[in-house]
């Protein structure tokens, strides 16, 4: 398909305008985060901070334990990703390649639970956590991941199905148990799929708001989104500080995104859902 010059310019302009709309809020966030309180409330708004108040970024820690929130977020996300990968890869491999009674109906049952929105199980799971004494602990957020995610199992099962059976048969003749096949052959092969699932569950956990909001009440245990929302609720907090905090909370995931784009894109393309 050929395009005339004007057409190309028009297309490029549209793309650029749309792209600008996409980044403008982030630029606005950055600009506001460097302003004085007074300048942040100038009308019409000014884009260039004058003076640049870099202290806004250091002053956040006066109002909230930012690095503690960051540590909590990283810690929870790490264990959740680890648990999800472990359980889902085991189950995904078993459902794809191992023969055992009840495999098909159980898998169907598992798949059908995908239709259950998390909000319906929210209250009973909260009650379970209450009886376990895990309210206001990170266990409430981490442990469920070790019991698998339907999406993750489904994703990895689909991947394992694509691996030819001959590979496994050969290993079996060599006397490998299903465990060593899983560990030595299947997992290394599944690296790209595991990376996709890892990124996907990392993103879900990092940005999760509702569950930490419900479970965590100690300031010292909160994750970034909840801590940030709490900070923003304070009546006498300044807008530039909130924007600085919001931007800082975005940084880790943005950096990860820039380096691991293709996994992000694949993860999203596979589910088509977020939020």
């Amino acid at each position: 398909m050929k395009h005339g010059l004007y057409q190309r310019i028009a297309v490029y302009a549209t793309v650029a305008l749309g792209g600008l709309t996409m980044v403008l809020p982030f630029v606005w966030m950055l600009s506001t985060s460097l302003k004085t309180t007074a300048q942040s409330m100038a009308f019409p708004p000014e884009w260039i901070p004058n003076p640049f108040v870099w202290e806004n970024y250091t002053r956040i820690t006066d109002y909230m334990p930012f690095f503690l929130f960051l540590y909590n977020s990283v810690k929870i996300a790490f264990f959740v990703v680890f648990g999800t990968l472990l359980t889902c890869s085991l189950a995904g491999y078993a459902f794809a390649k191992l023969r055992f009674p009840g495999r098909k109906p159980l898998f169907l049952l598992l798949l059908s639970t995908m239709m259950i929105p998390t909000q319906v199980t929210l209250i009973p799971v909260f009650v379970i956590m209450k009886y376990l004494g895990w309210i206001n602990t990170h266990y409430a957020l981490i442990v469920p991941a070790f019991f698998g995610s339907v999406f993750g199992t489904f994703l990895l099962r689909q991947f394992f199905l694509g691996i030819p059976n001959e590979l496994e048969d050969a290993a079996r003749i060599d006397g490998c148990t299903p465990w060593s096949i899983y560990w030595r052959i299947m997992l290394p092969l599944a690296k790209p799929s595991l990376a996709t699932l890892a990124i996907f569950s990392f993103m879900g956990t990092w940005n999760d708001f509702m569950r930490p909001l419900i479970y965590l009440s100690d300031m010292t245990k909160m994750t970034l989104p909840v801590g940030l929302a709490l900070l923003a609720n304070h009546q006498d907090i300044r807008i530039p500080l909130i924007m600085a905090g919001a931007l800082l909370s975005l940084l880790p995931i943005l950096v990860l995104y820039v380096f691991g784009q293709k996994y992000f894109v694949r993860g999203i393309a596979l589910t088509g859902m977020k939020g």
Binding site: G19, F209, S249, I268
Partner: peptide, 19 residues
């Protein structure tokens, strides 16, 4: 660039849009 909002956390986005 078009994909950046999709990876950002809802809270950070909600805060900047509120503003």
């Amino acid at each position: 660039i078009y994909f950046v909002p999709a990876v950002s956390s809802s809270v950070a986005i909600a805060l900047v849009w509120r503003w």
